[in-house]
Amino acid sequence: MEEKIVFCKGGGCTAKLGAGVLSRVLEKLPRGEQDPSLLVGYDSRDDAAVYKISDDTAIVQTLDFFPPMVDDPYTFGQIAAANALSDIYAMGGEVKTALNIVCFPEKMDLNILGEIMRGGSEKVIEAGGTLAGGHSIADSDVKYGLSVMGVVHPDRVLANNQGQPGDKLILTKKLGVGIICTANRVGEASEAAMHEAIRSMTTLNKYASEICRKYDVHACTDVTGFSFLGHLHEMLDGKLNCCIDASEVPVIEEAHRHADEFLLTAAGQRNRNHTGPFVEFRNIPFSMEEILFDPQTSGGLLAAVKAEQAEALEAELQNAGLPAKIVGTLLEKNSEAPEIVVE
């Protein structure tokens, strides 16, 4: 009989602390003396830290771990690893090494842990990296993820807040995996929708990142626990406005029905509370609003690309089998208008 993981209270990126709470904590931390080699740190709200070690090499560092959001341990390991590796790709980097982060109950079958780590290891290998070790502790609940190190040229770092007015926004994966996983927990998600969500969550952003490097991408982030709108708000960084065409946003179709049935997450409501004041919805159905606030686990890249190149980038991403779409436009800052308009 197949072993299954006992669900924790909140799995995947729904287990993240809310952006508002986290910001208040980080604001109080001592900064220390500024290091000019630290190109990107936590005060920038970016996806990973970037540290320059030479004129042509910078190290990209990140870590991510969380409780399970699917029953199968092997699949959970794949998703958790793909999610952790994603931050390297969001910065324009290449994965080099990874370390396992494991919390596991001593009373639970170690074969489950073996399957989780097998799934994670396979994704690190697919990324072209090396699993170099890790750390484990006994805990009451299962949690797994990776600390990842990558490299990038210092002049080609993709920060999340360097978009320019007129840039087109391209999203490389469908939204709605948080809602689908929530529906699955109560037995409401269809097998087809859950399969689509798992396929999305286990797909590395490596392939989208490699394609994006061929184009004039000015800014990039990956869409995870703070939702599409939350991560977009961070990209705008108080310096830009944005218009989103909701009809173009790629979505797992069944997520609309479950959102209308209020199969939502507490994390999604935290995202709405934090980012909602910056957003104006114009004739958008409730389900689409919720999908745009839905926390994504191992979500896609959201890239700001030069307008003249957007259609070519979209086409190349689609030809690679990704459901990428041009979803909006960055605009000049206008304090009199809503920061984000969704229509």
Rank of each mutant, 00 (worst) to 15 (best):
T265S: 15
G77A: 07
A267S: 12
M149K: 10
V223Q: 07
A337E: 14
A183N: 01
Y207G: 02
I244L: 14
V70G: 02
I116M: 11
G10L: 04
C243S: 11
A267W: 01
E248K: 15
L204T: 09
A324M: 06
V305W: 04
A132C: 12
N160V: 00
R45K: 09
Y74K: 14
H233T: 14
R257E: 08
Y207T: 15
H195C: 03
T221Q: 10
L85A: 11
T275P: 12
N111A: 06
A49K: 13
K214Q: 13
E122W: 01
A320W: 00
G163H: 06
D109K: 14
D139M: 11
L331A: 10
E248D: 09
P30I: 09
P338M: 04
R118C: 04
E261V: 00
H231I: 00
E308P: 01
G20P: 00
V148K: 07
T62I: 04
N334E: 05
D260Y: 00
G18K: 04
C220P: 02
A307P: 04
V148C: 11
N319P: 00
L29N: 08
L236G: 07
S247I: 02
I79H: 13
I244F: 01
A81C: 04
A219H: 07
I179S: 08
R24H: 03
L313M: 14
F226A: 12
A303R: 05
I59Y: 06
Q296S: 11
L22K: 08
Q78R: 15
L22D: 03
R31H: 10
K333E: 07
S37V: 01
L29I: 09
D43T: 15
P338V: 03
F286S: 06
I244T: 03
N184F: 00
A303W: 03
R185A: 01
K16C: 05
G238L: 09
E343R: 14
V148L: 07
H153C: 05
A324L: 03
N83T: 13
S190A: 03
A98Y: 06
Q34I: 08
F228A: 14
D71A: 07
I137K: 12
D260G: 00
N283G: 02
V95N: 10
E122K: 14
L302V: 06
Y89V: 03
N111W: 11
D47W: 10
G128T: 05
F76P: 02
